[in-house]
């Protein structure tokens, strides 16, 4: 449950590694509520070792601090985060930022195994793209290259 009065503050906090994406659109905020005059927020990691989580926690506290609200942030692991929790608006911001949004699991598998060319280049829109590396600049991404415009780009791996 996310208390409606807290949404606007949380939406102003972004993923430090993907600054265009708010933590709300990322789907990592699991709950936010008032408790005895303080705010209690729980977030869930995208990947176990995601170094952005500690920063997100600090950023959330700082965002509330600015409104003179004290916030406690804790981490929950279950249920495990999935890319389905990225909102439609989040997917759009990813694309605009130059990161291809995750496909559905079946398509993702085919794309990552190189069976099918279906990941759309966020620069020129071509689907004639190839995987360069299963792992990308962060744990949640793989590295692709467009065979049309030749630009390399990140693909946000499907996690389900």
């Amino acid at each position: 449950m996310i208390d409606k009065t807290l949404i606007s503050i949380l939406e102003a906090v972004s993923d430090p590694e993907i600054p265009v994406l708010s933590i709300m659109d990322m789907g990592v905020v699991r709950s936010a509520k008032w408790k005895e005059g303080k705010v209690v927020v729980t977030i869930t990691p995208t990947y176990s070792g995601c170094p952005a989580m500690d920063v997100m926690g600090d950023d959330i506290k700082a965002a509330f601090q600015k409104e003179n609200i004290e916030a406690n942030v804790s981490l929950v692991l279950s249920p495990a985060w999935t890319t389905d929790w990225i909102t439609e608006r989040g997917r759009k911001s990813l694309e605009e930022y130059g990161i291809a949004a995750p496909l559905d699991p079946e398509a993702d598998k085919e794309a990552l195994l190189g069976d099918k060319k279906i990941v759309k280049c966020p620069q020129c829109g071509a689907t004639q793209t190839k995987m360069i590396s299963q792992f990308g600049s962060t744990a949640c991404k793989a590295l692709f290259q467009c065979e049309e415009c030749l630009e390399p780009f990140d693909y946000f791996k499907c996690l389900k």
């Binding site: 990691p45 990947y47 176990s48 070792g49 995601c50 170094p51 792992f135 990308g136 962060t138 744990a139």
Partner: peptide, 9 residues
């Protein structure tokens, strides 16, 4: 990347 996952776990 794999190191990061393992250390996260």
């Amino acid at each position: 990347n794999m190191a990061l996952d393992l250390l996260g776990q």
